[in-house]
């Protein structure tokens, strides 16, 4: 399809961000490891967060994050700056996550989808982190969790989330608002605000 896209984003911060990520990816494509390191530290929380929303286990999400970055390194030469670099990286992560879920389904049927967001070996985790990541997030539905994480952590716009997850914008919005409310209720014990 012939596409002509004129985008004028006055949302400068995200536009700048996109440009920088694009540049980093170009350098990564040329084998620049330092750029790869920068890319990693800038995006790993988002990649990890999305993986976690699919596989529900901190441990497996770490694995996926590892694999995703290996693939990003490998596939960077094939990346064409058509969409957003973040969207591309997240798409890779989502695909790896889904593939992992399929393998799990085939090999074990006992997978009782428990939300397990705190890795065993994490040191910097505070009681507050635990309350938020483990307890509050577990009150959300899977889809709500994913949307909240993509918006809060990956900084994706609702529209971008919609196109990444292939759901209508209206659904993204309503799930997002519902999720935030649920989180607040969880954190504030449902008490008066």
């Amino acid at each position: 399809m012939l596409m002509l896209i004129l985008t004028q984003a006055t949302d400068e911060k995200s536009e700048e961000n996109r440009k920088e990520l694009n540049q980093l990816l170009q350098k990564v494509a040329a084998g620049d490891k330092e750029a790869f390191g920068q890319l990693y530290y800038r995006t790993r929380v988002a990649i990890y967060g999305l993986a976690l929303s699919y596989v529900k286990s901190a441990h497996t999400a770490q694995d996926i994050t590892h694999d995703a970055f290996v693939r990003i390194w490998e596939a960077a030469p094939q990346y064409r700056a058509q969409g957003t670099p973040m969207g591309w990286m997240l798409a890779i992560t989502r695909n790896l996550s889904l593939m992992r879920l399929r393998t799990q389904q085939r090999h074990t049927d006992l997978e009782e989808d428990q939300w397990d967001a705190i890795p065993a070996e994490a040191q910097a985790v505070t009681a507050e982190d635990r309350a938020l990541l483990q307890d509050a997030l577990s009150a959300l539905e899977e889809g709500e969790r994913r949307i909240v994480l993509l918006h809060a952590v990956a900084g994706l716009k609702h529209r971008e989330i919609g196109s990444l997850l292939e759901i209508p914008l209206a659904t993204v919005l309503s799930k997002y608002h519902r999720a935030l409310k649920k989180l607040r209720i969880q954190l504030e014990g449902g008490g008066p605000q």
């Binding site: 990890y48 770490q62 890795p119 505070t126 990541l133 809060a152 935030l180 989180l183």
Partner: peptide
């Protein structure tokens, strides 16, 4: 709330770059 979420998640992501 989103800021908190991001920070908390940062605490749990391992630094795996070397590997």
């Amino acid at each position: 709330l989103e800021q908190h979420l991001k920070q908390s998640l940062e605490h749990t992501v391992p630094d795996d770059f070397e590997r």
